[in-house]
Design a protein around this nucleic acid. Structure first.
Lengths: 148, 148
DNA sequence: AAGCATCAGTTTAGTTGTAAACTGAATAAA
DNA sequence: TTTATTCAGTTTACAACTAAACTGATGCTT
């Protein structure tokens, strides 16, 4: 006889229910976190998307727009738009070299980077203070497993 | 002497790093899941936000817009806009009663609800197939704990 | 060399969402 | 009764993001 076969066709109703609850909870945790991030970044008049670019460019100085898009998991079109704004704000500059454009921080951008990134990263991480180190490792492991 | 005090001031660099990795991973898992959801819903010409409303209204029939907003954790303004579209599509109707408006499904909406919701919910849940039941419970527990 | 594919970046149109100001009705208070 | 509060829903302006079509330059192929 088949072992542990209470339901084998797709997934038991119980598992489906669990999956749905995870989905709802995940979306709530993520969106709440995003909102708090936004709130926190207002101090420097930055949006979350702008911060992400600032952090990436500052950490790697000199990236192409494509590399940036890939690192942030967004489209090239999105990067174009965001860089337009950041350029207006005088935080980044684009230098065409051969066929590609390299993005780097201006002096103002660098200075803002140094001021904001450490504080913001600490804030970001603090959102998981409710978990101890072991639980964080567990959570990270489970999230990785979801993405196969 | 204080016990296990390698760093007590804020959080150890190690914990901060872990927190950041969780944040990145969470955002990737969520956005990927959202994208796949969108893809899947295209079959019925529905967006994820529209599906969420269809599912909620169908499950509770007759909700006010405020209740809907609260259940979905979005603003009333967003609900107004989405309902406008769904009304155009002939899927929901709004009935003013005293000062509030009650939202319910039309015949077309009901029929679409019956067709889409079970399939979509199963698809949604299947995104966590990589985890066994125990792991799902663990993940859910950790997510809940984050929200205190 | 001419033509074609490729690839970075841009543009455009559309969706989702927020925040904040506004409308209008019901209720409470003077 | 008149005024003020409250509260549901609407509107407006804006940010973020995608998908898909487009631009232009590089470089391969014949």
């Amino acid at each position: 006889m088949t072992e542990s076969h209470t339901d084998d066709s797709h997934l038991s109703k119980r598992d489906e229910r669990l999956g749905l609850m995870i989905w709802f909870r995940l979306s709530r945790v993520y969106n709440q976190s995003l909102k708090e991030t936004h709130q926190h970044l207002k101090k420097w008049d930055l949006t979350a998307a702008q911060f992400d670019i600032l952090a990436q460019v500052g950490a790697h100085n000199r990236l192409t727009q494509k590399q940036l898009a890939d690192k942030l998991f967004v489209t090239k079109g999105n990067i174009t738009q965001l860089l337009g704004k950041l350029e207006e704000l005088g935080l980044v500059k684009r230098e065409q070299e051969w066929k590609t454009k390299y993005v780097s921080l201006t002096k103002r951008g660098k200075s803002l980077f140094d001021k904001v990134v450490p504080v913001q990263e600490q804030f970001q991480a603090s959102q998981y203070d409710g978990l101890d180190r072991e639980e964080k490792k567990q959570l990270l492991g489970l999230l990785k497993k979801i993405q196969k």
